[in-house]
Design a protein around this nucleic acid. Structure first.
Length: 918
RNA sequence: GGGCGAUUAGCUCAGGGGUAGAGCGCCACGUUGACAUCGUGGAGGUCGGUGGUUCGAAACCACCAUCGCCCA
């Protein structure tokens, strides 16, 4: 073995072998365990969030696979309609072409080409992360099988009346020319104005003043509304105003929606271009005047001088004209919530179009119940609140998109505009008895990308065909995802799963936090703070990193700033850390927090951990070469480390069961480094190296070294699969364990044996002894190599026995040269002191120890103990405490007080001794 | 406006009614036959604020402050 762990070559080699050997496929006859990967979009490459999520899912899958479950981690990718179409359109634009130049078929072909590239990259990245997904079952949302599932669901829902076509106001993206669902629209405060317009009363008795943030929409006004209880305007209700510029007479109506305190209390009503106004229009049966085109320019239903103008140009012109007419009352600065498309970032327009909708309420009801009744559990539990809030207020889902990339809606129209829905044209003709001569054209629109994602838990398993997998792996066990897509995805999977499979798609939803940069900022290309997980694994030099972060920017002007920040944050580029170090970092970050700041400095520690493990293995292998058979004897240290391993195993099971990978990482890190390496390996050295030990003792320790290490590797494997696999092979051979791979060996189970209290107490005593000596050594600046004589005062029988049994450990590990028990009454020489229970460890000072330094050291200890004692006596002096606290707590406090007093008297005595010397 | 969350060591974060924790960073010493990607010792926090509940609060409750997210 190399002297240090070198991950690069090892990782690739091992992953290839795992995949070739088919280890990722479900196997055995254990209980099925299934996780569906949230399919990444084929829009590029995986980011830190994916890598984080993949690590969690892989750890869970490997854990369950090792526990003997028939584990399936289903991989796949999402076609991501709008997102992918935009990426490819941008590529085309860069070539000076548009999608219209290509036409629909060629364009879609081009997107498929892109999908192959991007998908290939994503798969390679997934492999580098060590993900044990079953590649043989890889799926894509636009595969034939999954498309069939989409069509069936659409047709079934339509036939049942749960999908309908309707003319409604939608969120219209005038750049992408498509409808968006509510979820795809992001609103943010932007600076704007509030314009106050005068609308003259037809009666000629003055005017009404309406306030609006959208002047241009006045061309489509159908009414002016006031609150029914608003006395200022009560007499005007039922009268009319004349709409300036347009010249249309529109009524003054009363509606509760109007807030009399806002502006003048008069509101212009534009049913075609505002969601609230649309509702009011419906209530009052107002005419709807659509004034916009698909591009959000004004259409031909407005006065001639406005036709064809962009909405924002028209706005200025309207304001000017009002001013010219003397009808502009005033303009106020005003902050408005501006809705923008989450992909195009264009200001979205409420726009009246024909769209397809899913009637959601009948689907939402059982989905709410599933969480209420606990058939689905959110982890952390809190997220169910978010889920409920949304589900109680859910709106019908607009599922049609005016895109080219996606599942074409399986609906056909005849010349009269009649709608026929079916799996394909033949099916439609058969179903409706349409002759071959009847011309049918298919709906041009495609489905919202989340429509197919909603079917993912069963479409990937082969549904609607009755495959074995559907029976076996549906429902899945847990969905691992971020809270940002609870509405987009989680809720819709639950609805569709219950509807079409008659059961929930999974029983637990583990919601993890979102990875942000070291400052808590969301990682995004335009901020230039994205990290490629592969760069953390393989490392990258500064110039390449700068190049990577600034290439292909949508906004070139940001590049210099990004370059500067990058050079500042990563002056030396990024070191290679290996996949396991990255995975362990992600594991440690998998807390319940919703935002996770990824600080590069954390990963270094886990790289060192891998190296530590590697070297521990080297030590174990070196020292077990000559391991024979025969009689063996376990020492206290052997028994102690086995007990500690057992306890750690218990913790690991608990942490996996509760999705606390952070605590799992902490437990196993602590055990590996601080118990196994720092103590046990050190304690094993005297046994292996001393002439005093017997063959049976040596063999006992050798067996313990190899057995605990082998088990430890299995304990760690779900989190750091590569290094554990690499080490496991020689270790397992040495331990005479069969098997080609650690990943199919059983996960350690805690033993049923009672914990080995005697051995634990022995070793804890040894630790206290050695720590006492080390403390003296450290603070007295005595070289670690210098062996010290130690005298013991007040040693009781137990101490004496332990000294006999454990002397070798004290001497070798504590670097103690001799241990001598002072007889009662024997006068000790001047010495530095450490306390171990009632016993006092004395290191004679002659030539070694500075009296003042020792006094300072003891004073410090004294201060601490006195403070402790004061707190304890304070408590005990409080009648309420003694009467009300649980007896065990009171007893504990009393014992503590006795301890502290004893310690104080010992320290006092020792300080007096020092004074005698001075 | 409604909802949710965060505030603990210099940094990143665990914890949780009974003596404040980890990793990283920092200081000192040290090449001890696994590991200098290391070892040993050490410094460092009145747990955001104010009230309340309690024998006891960093933890539970209320309010406030600051920051953040989601929904109108």
């Amino acid at each position: 073995m190399d002297k240090s762990y070198q991950p690069e070559e090892i990782e690739r080699r091992i992953y290839e072998r795992w995949e070739e050997q088919g280890y990722f496929a479900p196997r055995g006859d254990g209980a099925p365990y299934c996780i569906m990967i949230p399919p990444p979009n084929v829009t590029g490459t995986l980011h830190m969030g994916h890598a984080f999520q993949d690590t969690i899912m892989d750890a869970l899958t490997r854990y369950h696979r090792m526990k003997g479950d028939r584990a399936l981690w289903q991989p796949g990718m999402d076609h991501a309609g709008i997102a992918t179409q935009m990426v490819v359109e941008r590529l085309l634009n860069a070539e000076g072409k548009s999608k219209r130049d290509l036409g629909r078929d060629k364009f879609v072909e081009r997107v498929w080409q892109w999908k192959e590239e991007s998908g290939g990259q994503i798969e390679q990245q997934t492999r580098r992360l060590g993900a044990s997904v079953d590649w043989t079952r890889d799926r894509f949302t636009m595969d034939e099988g999954l498309s069939e599932a989409v069509r069936k669901v659409f047709v079934d829902l339509y036939d049942e009346g749960l999908i309908y076509r309707g003319k409604r106001l939608v969120n219209w993206d005038p750049v992408l020319h498509t409808a968006l669902s509510d979820l795809e629209v992001l609103s943010a405060d932007e600076d704007g104005s509030l314009w106050h317009f005068r609308y003259p009363l037809v009666s000629g008795e003055g005017h009404m003043v309406v306030a609006t943030t959208r002047p241009e929409t006045m061309l489509g006004d159908s009414a002016v509304a006031v609150h029914p209880d608003d006395e200022r305007y009560a007499h005007l209700i039922g009268q009319e105003v004349e709409l300036p510029i347009v010249g249309r007479r529109i009524p003054i109506i009363a509606d509760d929606y109007v807030d009399p305190a806002f502006g003048t209390g008069c509101v212009k009503i534009t049913p075609a271009h505002d969601f609230n106004d649309y509702e009011i229009g419906k209530r009052h049966d107002l005419p709807i005047y659509n004034i916009l085109t698909d591009d959000a320019a004004l259409n031909d239903d407005v006065p001639e001088s406005y036709r064809g103008l962009d909405r924002f140009v028209a706005r200025e012109k309207i304001v000017e004209e009002f001013e010219g007419l003397g009808l502009l009352e005033k303009i106020e600065d005003y902050t408005i919530k501006t809705p923008r498309g989450d992909r195009s970032h264009a200001v979205v327009e409420p726009y009246l179009t024909d769209q397809w909708y899913v009637k959601i309420e009948p689907l939402a009801k059982p989905a709410i119940e599933a969480v209420e009744t606990g058939r689905i559990r959110f982890v952390p539990e809190n997220w169910s609140k978010t889920y409920f809030d949304w589900m109680y207020n859910i709106q019908d889902w607009c599922i049609s998109r005016q895109l080219w990339w996606g599942h074409r809606i399986p609906a056909w129209y005849d010349a009269e505009g009649n709608i026929y829905v079916g799996h394909d044209e033949d099916d439609v003709r058969k179903k409706h008895g349409l002759a071959a001569g009847v011309a049918l054209t298919q709906d041009d629109d495609v489905l919202d990308t989340w429509f197919s994602s909603a079917l993912w838990p069963f479409s990937t398993l082969g549904w609607p065909e009755k495959t074995r997998e559907v029976g076996e792996f549906y429902p899945g066990n847990v969905l691992v995802t971020g809270f940002d897509i609870i509405f987009f995805w989680v809720a819709r999977m639950i609805m569709m799963g219950i509807k079409f499979m008659g059961d929930v798609p999974f029983h637990e939803v583990y919601i993890h936090g979102l990875i942000r940069d070291q400052d808590g900022q969301k990682m995004s290309k335009s901020k230039g703070n994205v990290l490629d997980p592969l760069d953390l694994i393989d490392g990258i030099d500064l110039e390449s990193l700068v190049e990577k972060r600034t290439a292909g920017m949508m906004q070139d002007h940001l590049a210099p700033r990004i370059e500067k920040a990058t050079r500042q944050h990563f002056p030396d580029g990024i070191d290679a850390h290996g996949c396991d170090a990255l995975r362990m970092t992600f594991g440690a970050l998998a807390t319940n927090a919703r935002d996770i700041s990824f600080d590069l400095r954390r990963i270094g520690g886990y790289k060192n951990f891998c190296n530590k493990l590697w070297n521990a293995a080297r030590y174990v292998l070196m020292n077990t070469e000559s391991m024979g058979d025969g009689e063996f004897e376990l020492s206290a240290a052997d028994r102690w480390i086995r007990a500690r391993f057992d306890a750690t195993t218990r913790e690991m099971h608990k942490h996996f069961a509760t999705y606390r990978l952070d605590l799992a990482v902490q437990s196993v890190y602590e055990f590996t480094w601080h118990e196994f390496c720092d103590w046990y390996l050190e304690l094993s050295k005297p046994v292996l190296q001393s002439d005093e030990s017997t063959n049976a003792m040596r063999l006992g320790t050798q067996k313990t070294l190899i057995e605990v290490l082998e088990s430890l590797l299995r304990l760690l494997h779900p989190i750091i699969p590569f290094v554990t696999e690499e080490i496991w092979e020689p270790v397992a051979r040495r331990a005479r364990i069969e098997g080609d791979t650690i990943m199919l060996r059983p996960y350690p189970e805690p033993s049923d044996n009672a914990s080995d209290d005697e051995a634990v107490a022995d070793i804890e005593w040894v630790q206290q002894f050695i720590l006492g000596i080390r403390q003296i050594r450290g603070e007295m600046d005595i070289s670690p190599g210098k062996a010290l004589p130690v005298l013991l005062q007040h040693a009781d029988d137990v101490d004496e026995q332990r000294i006999q049994r454990l002397r070798l450990l004290l001497q070798r590990v504590g670097r103690v040269d001799s241990v001598k028990i002072l007889a009662d009454g024997e006068q000790p020489p001047a010495a530095a002191t450490a306390l171990l229970g009632d016993m006092r460890l004395l290191v004679p000072m002659k030539g070694l120890i500075d009296v003042d330094a020792e006094r300072a050291r003891l004073d410090k200890q004294m201060d601490k103990v006195r403070a402790d004692l004061a707190r304890t006596t304070g408590k005990l002096g409080n009648e309420n405490f003694v009467n009300n606290a649980p007896p065990a707590v009171v007893t504990q406090e009393r014992e503590r007080a006795v301890e502290f007093e004893k310690t104080i008297s010992q320290l006092t005595e020792q300080l007096a001794k020092l004074d005698e010397l001075a």
